[in-house]
């Protein structure tokens, strides 16, 4: 969990100002010292609240057009092994077990083209021996934004 002070800091550092000393600018906004901001950031990194600092990149705009979601129906006792196996593939970007539907293991891959994405999805599934699966490409993107803490607390 995080304190209110940390939440205020996260609201600022989730989108860094593009200036030479971004942490100094954030420190000014918060009435803190630059060093204090960096210490808090490192602590939040250590605790895993901040996964990393870096860019959120539009996959499509950098040439990844074949990004299917693949869903598998895995026997419960094999879920851990199959999940870890799929996660170890370098082009798999997300792999989760989920409850609530006919399929319980989900993974995403990022490929340059639809064909490449489809081939890789089939290939990755075939190494697991799982028979029940579906490969679902997106047809239309209605929204895709990085998770951010809202600027105000009164989100809708």
């Amino acid at each position: 969990m995080i304190s209110e002070e940390e939440k205020d800091l996260l609201r600022e550092v989730q989108r860094l100002p593009l200036t030479k000393r971004p942490f100094a600018e954030i420190a000014d906004r918060l009435g803190m010292k630059e060093e204090g901001v960096m210490i808090m950031c490192n602590d939040l990194l250590d605790r895993g609240v901040i996964r990393r600092f870096g860019p959120s990149i539009s996959h499509r705009k950098v040439g990844f057009a074949g990004n299917p979601m693949t869903v598998l129906n895995v026997p419960e006792e094999e879920l851990d092994d199959v999940g870890r196996e799929i996660a170890s593939e370098p082009d798999v970007t997300h792999c989760y077990a989920r409850s609530g539907w006919d399929y319980n293991l989900f993974f995403m891959i990022h490929a340059r083209t639809r064909e490449e994405g489809l081939d890789r999805a089939h290939e990755i599934v075939s190494t697991t021996g799982i028979q029940g699966y579906r490969i679902m490409f997106s047809i239309k993107e209605f929204k895709k934004i990085p998770f951010e803490i809202p600027k105000e607390n009164n989100i809708r």
Binding site: I2, L10, R52, S58
Partner: peptide, 20 residues
């Protein structure tokens, strides 16, 4: 790259679960 939408944002990537 930010103006053209290639970079959606640059900064801390948060783990919502760790914040509850």
């Amino acid at each position: 790259l930010t103006d053209s939408g290639v970079i959606r944002k640059l900064g801390a990537v948060l783990n919502p679960r760790k914040m509850g």
